[in-house]
Amino acid sequence: MLSPSSSTRSATSRLLSRRTLLLGGAVSLMAGCASDIRPLSEEAKAKVGSPAPSASATASPSAFSSPSATAASSASASASAKSSSSSAARVPVSEDALVEGWKKYPGPLKLTGEYMGEYQPATASSPAKNVPKPLKTVPHREEPTFQGAYETLRAYYSAQIATLKDGRYADQTIDLTYPADKRAIDEIKAIKELYEKNGWYMEFTCSIVMQNAEPDSALKNGDGYVEIVMDAEYSATAIHQPDGTERKVPAITQVSVSHVMLYTEGKWWRISNDYLSERFNGGKGSSGSGGSGSAGSSGSSGRGSTKV
């Protein structure tokens, strides 16, 4: 089950919220995913709780799809059943299955990208050039496994950081965010708008490391949730605004950042805690600020760092 984060993590989230820099009243910078991830309320956790035992909850991985027609069914019924089976969305078998094999993944998060030429960092006079293009293909995204959740989060970070360096990649970040998480999507669109108005993010570095702790998981109505905790550090940077001025963004020291990944409609998605609360509170989100957020950071942790 998704468990409450420690009071230390909660205090850290509140600290980051105070340090969040808003652009156009929508996008949070650098504190990124850390600015909006808060411990789930007891009410939300209860509503995300495990469903009552059912065939889908006890079936083996090979039984994700709808059962085929029985031998006594007619040929047309059998064909219809096969078609339904092949198109049916897969569902997680159990909470344990959602985190099985997680021990292979702790450590630095390796970002993916295809170099389009010699990378040139952003300067005070121009945005970054030849930013590595994030890969659109996400391995295992359609599988209700921890590997699928991890690869989707890795693709999300890769696309998000590429978007901060080149707003043209915003749509790829949006494609990895659940469509109903409107606030998170609006924040990403604000980054795209910044670049369209001839603004940009100055150069920054980041360190993102998965903690060596078993992720929490939950099931609800066939959907799966996995909470992955990352250690992150962010370097100081600045936003070159469309009017030619610069807005400074301070460095953020290492923090624990909780990411909730949602498996629904046959694939994994990145969601904010605000949206998770909305999903189980009849459309009523939490009163705190923050959505999906944006990431960019620097520094190192005890297990190494990923430089971008």
Rank of each mutant, 00 (worst) to 15 (best):
M1C: 05
P4R: 13
A11K: 15
R14F: 11
L15E: 14
A26C: 10
A26S: 14
A34W: 09
D36T: 12
R38C: 05
K47S: 11
V48A: 11
P53S: 08
S56K: 03
S65T: 04
S68G: 07
A69E: 13
A69M: 11
T70V: 07
S78C: 07
A79P: 07
A81D: 05
S83A: 14
S83H: 05
S87V: 12
V93P: 00
E95L: 08
A97F: 06
V99K: 09
G101V: 01
Y105C: 04
G113F: 01
M116Q: 12
M116K: 11
E118D: 08
Y119L: 01
P127A: 00
V131G: 01
K136C: 08
E143S: 01
T145Y: 00
T145C: 00
Q147K: 07
L153E: 12
R154T: 01
R154A: 01
A155S: 15
Y157K: 10
Y157T: 12
Q160R: 04
G167I: 00
D171L: 03
P179R: 06
K182V: 15
E187N: 02
I188V: 15
K189N: 08
I191K: 05
E193Y: 05
Y195R: 00
C206E: 15
M210K: 02
M210L: 13
A213E: 15
D216F: 02
E227C: 08
M230R: 03
A232I: 13
Y234A: 10
A236R: 01
Q241E: 13
P242R: 04
D243T: 02
H259K: 05
V260P: 01
E265D: 14
G266A: 07
R270I: 01
F280A: 06
N281H: 15
S286A: 10
G291Y: 02
S297E: 07
G299D: 11
G299C: 12
S300D: 10
S301H: 03
R303K: 15
T306N: 09
T306H: 06
T306L: 10
K307V: 08
K307Q: 11
